[in-house]
Simulated assay, not measured.
Amino acid sequence: MIRGVRGAVTVEENNENEMIEATGILVKKMIQENNIEAEDVASVFISVTEELTAGFPAKALRTIEGWTYVPVMCMREIPVEGSLPMCIRVMMHVNTDSTQQNITHIYLRDAIQLRPDLKATSST
């Protein structure tokens, strides 16, 4: 079964290094909390809010050993009025035996407000 593992993080500035660093922290926590192996990942979608234009957050995945061949795509989040700014969202499609209820979705920094209803690991 392919399951979606969600995560999101915010950044302070439209800065490539900050975007890559924050995405790396987020993705590594998603991997750790859900025991994800690169070979089990079908694809990863990463969206950014419209003010984040300094770089590709997908570069963060290329720094993780074993993730060279995982398909990753960056895209722009739709600009909904009042939505959380400076936000990077990740959707990882993972082959797993886990039920949807046992997936741990990760929300860091200001992104914890996105899905307070889900079982989530939150941090600053």
Rank of each mutant, 00 (worst) to 15 (best):
T96V: 11
I78Q: 12
T63S: 12
R115Q: 12
L84K: 02
T23W: 05
D40F: 07
A111K: 06
R62E: 13
A58C: 10
Y69E: 08
G24C: 05
D110C: 01
R109H: 11
M30H: 07
G66A: 10
E13L: 03
S83P: 00
R3G: 04
H105E: 11
P85I: 02
A42Q: 11
G82W: 07
E13Q: 06
A42V: 10
A120K: 15
I64F: 09
N95K: 15
M75I: 00
E50Y: 06
P57S: 04
T53E: 06
Q100G: 15
V9F: 02
E21W: 11
E21M: 13
K29R: 12
F56S: 13
V90T: 13
S83T: 12
I106A: 13
T68P: 00
G4N: 14
V94L: 09
R3F: 03
Q100N: 14
M92G: 03
R6E: 11
V5Q: 04
V90D: 03
I31C: 02
V90N: 04
A8N: 02
N35D: 08
P71E: 05
K119T: 13
L118Q: 14
Q100I: 10
V44D: 04
A42D: 04
T104S: 09
E39R: 12
L114M: 14
V41E: 04
A120C: 15
S123C: 08
M75C: 11
G66E: 07
T23R: 11
A60H: 01
I88F: 03
T23Y: 06
V11N: 06
I2S: 15
